[in-house]
């Protein structure tokens, strides 16, 4: 864990301001993130756990520039992401990518997988169209799918297959940091295990850094090197998952761990 962190977050605050209302009562602004700081070393998998409304998805979306924080800073590979974003969508998309929770709805239902996967190749990697077929085949094989499926539409895939495609899209332009927002929550357990294995394999092969968000403590424990527990927009506890989950010190973490049904 030496050198510059792959991802660094400093005092990140995100407040949702209510919509301007001409009539009706004024609502109070909602604080989704109240000053979060964390760092992820290159090659590390950082797990983020917490329950709905704790701010973990807001944090994830700030990491890839889908949301603009109210204050604070996000650095990817030492570069502030607002500066990367200012250079155009390509610079940011080449350094950090995102995998969504619901694989089917993260794929456009009216475009084939070939069309969807060609987008990052064209706009992020700047690959000439002649080189697309070979690279597309490579991407599909990299996530364990048959390249013959490239001309199918998203609804023809199972959830697990669709998530593999979404992962292939995230890796298409060579981003080294991947933010995974509940990537296996919508999948059946047997498929979930396969996708988790794929993620581990891809990380080793491409030397990736993961920010892995989940509400499922066991899934986080399986994948993460380090885990932070979030509650009400703040990090309440941090540590190695085996230690943190076997001996939680913060009362919220304790309650969370106690609630997990055991086999």
């Amino acid at each position: 864990m030496s050198g510059a962190p792959a991802v660094q977050v400093r005092d990140l605050v995100k407040t949702y301001r209510p919509r301007f209302a001409l009539f009706g009562r004024r609502r109070k602004p909602v604080t989704a993130l109240g000053g979060v700081s964390l760092a992820v070393a290159p090659g590390e998998t950082l797990g983020i756990v917490g329950e709905s409304g704790c701010g973990k998805t807001t944090l994830a979306r700030c990491l890839v520039g889908l949301l603009r924080p109210s204050s604070g800073q996000v650095l990817v590979a030492g570069q502030p992401i607002d500066r990367l974003a200012a250079e155009g969508p390509a610079a940011l998309g080449r350094s950090v990518q995102y995998v969504f929770q619901d694989p089917i709805s993260s794929l456009n239902p009216r475009r084939t997988i070939r069309q969807t996967l060609a987008v990052p190749l064209r706009f992020l990697a700047g690959l000439p169209p002649g080189d697309h077929p070979a690279r597309l085949r490579e991407l599909m094989e990299g996530v364990g799918l048959d390249p013959a499926m490239l001309d199918r539409y998203p609804h023809e895939f199972s959830g697990g297959q669709a998530q593999r495609i979404a992962i292939a899209r995230a890796l298409a332009a060579g981003a080294r940091v991947v933010v995974l927002d509940e990537p296996v929550s919508a999948l059946d357990v047997s498929v979930q295990a396969q996708v988790l294995r794929l993620l581990v394999e891809l990380k080793a092969r491409h030397d990736l850094t993961y920010v892995f968000i989940s509400h499922d403590l066991a899934v986080v424990e399986a994948l993460a090197d380090r885990v932070v527990v979030m509650s009400a927009g703040a990090v309440v506890e941090e540590g190695r998952p085996e230690e943190l989950f076997s001996a939680p010190s913060h009362p919220y973490t304790r309650r969370l761990v106690a609630s997990v049904p055991r086999l």
Binding site: S190, A193, Q194, L196, A222, F245
Partner: peptide, 26 residues
């Protein structure tokens, strides 16, 4: 057996990352 083996259990969750020969492909 496959189903149970695929469930990550807190405390020994990393076990599911070991490839299970019983596992059918997706």
């Amino acid at each position: 057996r496959r189903l149970i083996a695929a469930v990550p259990v807190l405390g020994r969750a990393k076990e599911i990352l070991r490839t299970d020969p019983l596992e059918a492909p997706a």
